[in-house]
Write a protein that binds this DNA or RNA. Structure first.
Length: 455
RNA sequence: GGCCCGUUGGUCCAGUGGUGAGGACGCCUGACUCUCAAUCAGGAGGCCACCGGUUCGAAUCCGGUACGGGCUGCCA
């Protein structure tokens, strides 16, 4: 049975790269009736806060990876397994596979004359009984990581230093703890980011030394920004939560993320999880880094938004509207907005004119729209508004007529009215908007615009 | 510096020895049209990084080069 794991360290936010890794693992577990283990790697006290862990769990739940599914196991906390890690270190020490070392970084740099030469084996035969613990690596030959995605990757052993597996205070380090946990949790497939390939070379030595046979390795390509650099939280928008808050639907996010480094084949990319999941295979994962293209994500999100049943769409918009705004009024324009917003948060700028006492004007829009005969148009339309039948068709005909008298088409004539009513040059269909706004307010806004024009 | 990985239109993927290299996003044009979308119909854009080899035949196999990236911590 396939047992995969997702082992994030708790940091302040949940990275989209982590989300993809989790999704790939989840697909593997779900399609095979296996198990997905969530293990929080919290051994570094400096980056460990309970709320970080909650963030991870809720982010995973958002993209459909949740603890109520029988496939899910955990969360486990790496820190609780420290006794086993220490035991493993003791065993390696007892077996002569590891040794104590008291060299400081400065000692080493002084000896080798370089920051990057790696450990020189100074303490190998000193028989120390305290200090950091280093794993003894072979000096010749190669270490092979058999990777499903990359094939056979060889690491020359003469370039592999005796790496540290426990600190001077006895606490275990990542490479060791990670391997021990994977072994005790019977992980069969280690699927993680490419940045761990180097760790795999070390762990390929660790597993047998700890009496276990190596798992299947799969190192996913890195996700990069437009500069082709690994997405980093310092310079890039990487927090899954920020996308969620902006109004990306989980379904769209999941769909898009699955396409980073993999594709279902065929000519269809928009595909629900249930269809996508069984198609996934590690063998078909691309090995080249992938650019996180928010434009494409937006397009996908638009597709998913349009596919939403109207009531659900309205419901999903609510968080982006003021609680005081009349939901019934919103319902009247929601269908007009649904095809127009690629992310939910943009609902606000489309409908705010209905609820605010005064529309939000931006100077550029105003200037742009109030270029040709604004006073004539607004004055003409104002008198029409006071008497016209209150339906979109009549409202439209009335403006059409005003425009004709000035030798202007509807397209030109509508601009000043649109800005007067909504404050913006682009938005929902105008006459439906006016209808919903109501006669009194519409008249009032056109008057206000006229006043602003000094007419 | 050392080790490792990668390279198909701007971007993400299909294509894994055999007719004109496909799809998606983006872009452009047109239709529709009150703006913007949506929708529909078209279009531009790739000598499959480069060089050499294997082969009757290579985007697909091999080698090298260039460029990009990752790792290189008593972090994870």
């Amino acid at each position: 049975m396939i047992r995969v794991r997702f082992a994030p360290s708790p940091t302040g936010m949940f990275h989209v790269g982590g989300a993809r890794t989790a999704l790939f693992n989840w697909a593997l577990a779900e399609q095979s009736g296996g198990v997905f283990v969530l293990r929080i790697e919290d051994t570094d006290a400096s980056r460990n806060q309970p709320e970080w862990t909650e963030g991870i769990i809720s982010a995973l739940a958002w993209i459909g990876i949740n603890g109520t599914n029988p496939v899910f196991e955990g969360p486990y906390f790496q820190s609780t397994f420290e006794p086993q890690h220490r035991e493993a270190v003791a065993k390696l020490l007892a077996d002569g596979r590891a040794y104590f070392c008291d060299c400081t970084r400065e000692d080493l740099v002084a000896r080798t004359g370089s920051e990057h030469k790696g450990y020189d084996g100074h303490c190998r035969e000193r028989g120390l009984s305290a200090g950091a613990v280093r794993f003894r690596t072979p000096d010749e030959g190669v270490t092979v990581v058999d990777d499903i995605i990359r094939g056979r990757v060889e690491f020359p052993n003469d370039a592999q230093e005796d790496f540290v597996i426990a600190r001077t205070d006895g606490s275990p380090l990542y490479v060791l703890a990670n391997a021990v946990d994977d072994i005790t949790q019977n992980i069969t497939h280690v699927v993680r980011g490419e940045e761990h390939l180097g760790n795999a070379a070390k762990q390929v030595m660790l597993w047998p030394a700890l009496g276990a046979t190596t798992p299947v390795w799969a190192h996913l390509p890195v996700i990069v920004n437009e500069q082709r650099k690994k997405l980093s939280k310092r310079r890039d928008k990487v927090a899954l939560e920020s996308y969620r808050d902006e109004g990306y639907l989980a379904e769209a996010m999941v769909n898009y993320l699955m396409l980073l480094g993999w594709g279902p084949g065929g000519d269809r990319e928009i595909m629900p999880w249930a269809e996508m999941m069984p198609l996934f295979s590690l063998e078909n994962v691309n090995s080249a880094s992938a650019f996180f293209d928010e434009k494409k994500l937006r397009a996908f999100n638009g597709e998913y938004i349009r596919a939403l049943p109207l009531e659900i769409f309205e419901e999903r918009c609510l968080p982006y509207l003021d609680p005081s705004w009349d939901a019934e009024l919103f319902s009247k324009v929601a269908p007009l907005a649904q095809t127009r917003i690629p992310v939910l948060s943009e609902i606000r700028q489309n409908v705010d004119f209905l609820f605010l006492d005064e529309p939000v004007f931006d100077e550029a829009s105003w200037d742009k729209a109030m270029k040709k005969n604004p006073v004539e148009i607004l004055t003409g339309y104002l008198s029409a508004l006071e008497v016209v039948n209150w339906d979109p068709e009549s409202l439209k005909d009335a403006l059409l007529k005003v425009g004709e008298e000035l030798g202007m088409g509807l397209s030109k004539a509508q601009a000043p009215v649109r800005v007067a009513i909504t404050g913006r040059t682009v938005g929902l269909p105008l006459f439906e908007s006016i209808e919903v706004l109501g006669r009194a307010k519409s008249v009032e806004r056109v008057r206000a615009a006229l006043a602003k024009l000094g007419a």
